[in-house]
């Protein structure tokens, strides 16, 4: 029964993806500007024939519905098209940029969890204590601080003044690990390349803090509030009355049951980290999806933006689906699809 529900949800993703595809396709063409003109830049003595030839080459001379059909057919065959501004296949470009974004998102969320889980438990246990109040104030700050400004401040302090960490980029030349997955940290562990591991971790620190601050704050708050809620339940009082050690009560009974909303929120935070960090990527010179797609919009690189947004859409749908599945799995009383 549950399997069927999951399958149903997965199938419901198909029209969403189709919708994303069509919306971005039309949206890009509504933005004024001609990709061929941008591609030619300041080229002088260009003839109209040359321009027409280029337009034909990228199928830009056909009516829009024909272009859309052609594009959709190609996408179904796994061909995301050719990027005008970067002279490369969109799929290759995305496969290059995606690991960078994924690595940054994963490291940010790891950092966030490392802070949030202990802090969330502690604030719940020491409810209304000084620790609780300070952490809650700090978490509000974390939520309210724009990531890009935090990034600038971090660069200013740790890279420019103290010179502890690099200002930008993913790796110093010579420290790029052999390509396995495209995630530098994972690759350097897999190949046993210690200097490369150190180097990529050093590059990850500042952008991860900048991006991880807000999720850390959110997750702390969620863990705290759901633990507080669980602690009021009868079975917790009962367990305490039975003489179970306090730490065991907290970890076994309270934390486990408070985990459900935390997992959901973590999932959603990963989703938004994968989708919304182009300003931070720009500041840290991170060669990820965000820079690719912003640049694509500015150079009217239709195929590139379409491809990238489809990846975003797919990630969003997938992350939501996984969060839903986890939610029901942790909380068997619920049926998938009923969550608002």
């Amino acid at each position: 029964m549950r399997g069927v529900k999951i399958l149903e949800r997965a199938l419901a993703a198909i029209p969403i993806m189709l919708g994303v595809c069509i919306v971005v396709f039309i949206f890009m063409r509504l933005i004024p500007g001609d990709p061929v003109d941008i591609m030619l830049g300041e080229a002088s003595n260009v003839t109209q024939e040359e321009i027409d030839a280029l337009r034909a080459q990228f199928n830009l001379d056909e009516p829009i519905h024909v272009q859309l059909t052609t594009y959709l057919t190609r996408v179904l065959k796994g061909d995301l098209g050719y990027s005008i501004s970067r002279s490369a296949n969109v799929r290759d470009l995305l496969l290059e940029a995606l690991p960078a974004t994924v690595e940054l998102a994963l490291s940010s969320i790891t950092l966030a969890l490392l802070v949030a889980v202990p802090l969330g438990i502690m604030t719940a246990v020491r409810h209304r204590s000084a620790v609780d109040r300070t952490s809650m104030a700090a978490s509000f700050l974390g939520i309210s601080m724009p990531a890009f400004w935090l990034g600038i401040v971090l660069i200013l302090i740790f890279a420019v003044r103290l010179k502890w960490l690099p200002t930008s980029g993913r790796a110093t030349y010579g420290f790029v690990p052999t390509h396995v997955t495209g995630l530098y940290v994972l690759d350097s562990i897999l190949t046993g390349d210690v200097p490369a591991l150190k180097d990529s971790l050093r590059h990850l620190v500042l952008p991860s803090i900048a991006l991880g601050a807000a999720p850390a704050a959110v997750i702390t708050r969620v863990i705290r509030s759901s633990m507080l809620e669980v602690m009021r339940k009868d079975y917790v009082t009962f367990a305490r009355a039975k003489g179970v050690a306090e730490w065991a009560v907290i970890l076994k009974h309270v934390f486990r049951n408070a985990l459900i909303p935390a997992v959901t929120v973590t999932g959603l935070e990963i989703g938004s980290l994968l989708g919304g960090n182009m300003v931070v990527e720009t500041i840290f010179g991170w060669p990820g999806m965000g820079r690719l797609v912003v640049d694509g919009i500015f150079s009217r690189d239709y195929s590139l933006v379409q491809g990238a947004v489809m990846v975003y859409g797919f990630t969003f749908v997938a992350v939501n689906l996984i969060a839903d599945i986890l939610y029901t799995w942790l909380n068997p009383k619920l049926v998938i699809g009923e969550k608002v």
């Binding site: 660069i155 930008s168 500041i283 060669p287």
Partner: peptide, 20 residues
């Protein structure tokens, strides 16, 4: 020779100062 793409001028300046 390594050519690094650093579109942001402030980044380039900071990297030059840091010896990167």
């Amino acid at each position: 020779v390594v050519f690094r793409m650093m579109p942001d001028p402030a980044t380039r300046v900071a990297a030059l100062k840091a010896g990167e």
